[in-house]
């Protein structure tokens, strides 16, 4: 399996003067092979359970402070900005519902994923890139161990598992921010606020949010790992790997968001 992956890289290097078109196809082939290998390695033993737990903790812990701050501020600001529009129609009592729906459907998954793409994606890209250029990945290979399973599979799985958890955490913290604003402005109690909010949330909202977060988490992990695992050209390559992990990760998250909104809208209508 390892040898096949290397061959494709060699193939890419050996193509004489490949045009842009050929390069795009070779890269797509590489990405496809990388993703396919992830699924193969994820299901086949031996499993790196200890490393997976370590990565989950690392990803969650690393993003917690930033996500808490951003989620709280977003909930508070969103509520404050939405109030005048609703007040025009005398509908300020709808604020908790509006904030809950906005947070759960879009803001929480998107915010969490964008922050994770910046913080976790870049970190994965830089870490694996650095391991590639300092031959640590080669060292794992020559010691008859599987670096893909240890480094890539665990990180992609960890981000796929952790991002949905962080998403619901962001939604909760955002709601607390909104509650603070509503309490200060209207004196609404926490019980009344959460009762109104939860009434407006459907099962489909929770499913849609979870599915989106899983896809975003997988994207962040796979993009970071692909960029880092295949990086080259020394320290410059490490920088590029970290940078493209963020840029490509965020770009794909927005594309996926647009598609998923369209997809879940079909079930709502």
């Amino acid at each position: 399996m390892e040898r096949k992956a290397n061959t494709s890289i060699v193939l890419k290097a050996n193509v004489k003067g490949p045009g842009k078109f050929t390069r795009v196809f070779l890269t797509l082939y590489d990405v496809f092979e990388f993703v396919a290998r992830f699924f193969r390695e994820a299901f086949l033993p031996p499993y790196e359970g200890k490393e997976l737990v370590r990565q989950c903790f690392d990803i969650g812990y690393r993003s917690l402070l930033l996500i808490s701050t951003t989620g709280f501020i977003t909930g508070m600001v969103f509520t404050k900005q939405s109030r005048p529009s609703l007040a025009e129609f005398g509908a300020t009592s709808w604020l908790p519902s509006l904030v809950a729906i906005a947070l759960l459907r879009t803001l929480a998954p998107l915010l969490t994923s964008l922050i994770a793409a910046g913080k976790v994606g870049s970190s994965i890209g830089a870490e694996l890139g650095s391991m590639r250029v300092t031959e640590q990945i080669d060292a794992m290979e020559v010691s008859a161990t599987n670096p893909f399973k240890f480094l890539v599979t665990t990180r992609v799985l960890a981000s796929t598992i952790t991002i949905p958890i962080l998403t619901f955490y962001t939604a909760l913290v955002g709601m607390l921010g909104a509650l603070l604003n509503v309490y200060i402005s209207e004196g609404t109690s926490a019980v009344a606020f959460f009762q109104t909010s939860l009434e407006s949330i459907t099962f489909l909202d929770i499913i849609a949010s979870t599915v989106k977060a899983v896809i975003f988490g997988f994207t962040i992990g796979i993009v970071g790992c692909y960029q880092g695992y295949n990086s080259s050209k020394g320290t410059e390559g490490v920088g590029k790997a970290a940078n493209s992990s963020v840029v490509i990760g965020m770009f794909l998250i927005f594309i996926e968001e647009v598609i998923s909104v369209q997809f879940f809208a079909m079930f709502r209508s």
Partner: peptide, 11 residues
């Protein structure tokens, strides 16, 4: 295989 830069896992 002993690498030129040792390639120790730095984490």
């Amino acid at each position: 295989f002993s690498f030129q830069n040792s390639a120790l896992y730095d984490s």
